[in-house]
Amino acid sequence: MSKQTKLTVSASPHIVSPVTTSSIMFDVIIALLPACFGGVYFFGFRSAVLILCSVLFCVLAEAVYNKLTKKPQTVGDLSAVVTGILLALNVPVTLPIWMLAVGCLFAIIIVKQLFGGLGCNFVNPALAGRAFMLASWAGAMTTFVKPFADISLFFPAADTVSTATPLATLKLGSVEGLSIVSAFFGNTGGCIGETSALLILAGAAYLLIKKVISWRIPVCYLATFALLTFLFGKSQFDWNYTLLSLLTGGLLFGAFFMATDYTTTPSTPRGKLIFGIGCGILTFVIRRFGGYPEGVSYSILLMNVAAPLIEKATVPKVFGEVRAK
């Protein structure tokens, strides 16, 4: 060998899997696209504007923060894009853009970057951003319009007639005027990305097939919630009511896209099961006994905080180990 050839010497292993953090984030973006298009289809062009603005705000916030604090630029990992999309899909189409911008800043700067950036935040940034907006502008965040309403780009609140969401009806223990078919396809009032179960499931299937997420959290979450609702819901032993509770609100979206966030959930297989069950119980309790029709965001946020404890309690048994009782 010629003397000029330089050999790299490093410890094994010498090969790595093609899956990277940014390829995972890219897969999540692809999985969110059906819900995005659904939002635009049902709630009009303004949805697209909100989604794009949200992504822009999030990416800019992270880029500027890194620049100002002289940290390495990390927007290439695409996690800010994912946060942006998630946040936009969780607001009503009539939300003023400046409110969304504040939510994005809160999510990226306060929740994520101040704690050390990707992998260091202890709650899901998009959910925390949404909770922040809900606490700040409860009216604007819960003004829902009927699908296919004509919404002006700049003064959305001026010319809309708000509608009751299916959740508000279910809260009363009634299924009157609610249709499983429209809840499944998404033809009901709600946040931009949460109304169509079909499109959310399409994205979820993609994530499961690509092994980006495991079945553990979403299946445990949904199964626990469904079981509790069926047994102890406002309308007991009612298949129709249980199914509608599953399909409406942010439950499916939360179970597949929010509760599966890696950083804020346990990394152990058994921990994931417990996390999902915990989310299911909390969502049921909030929806059934709380004063608030939705419960997904707060359930997941609460479980996020408990995740490190769950992880510690579910350390797998070493191969071959016989654990002393």
Partner: peptide, 9 residues
């Protein structure tokens, strides 16, 4: 940064 995905686990 570790994103805690749990693949290694």
């Amino acid at each position: 940064p570790c994103i805690n995905c749990g693949r290694c686990v």
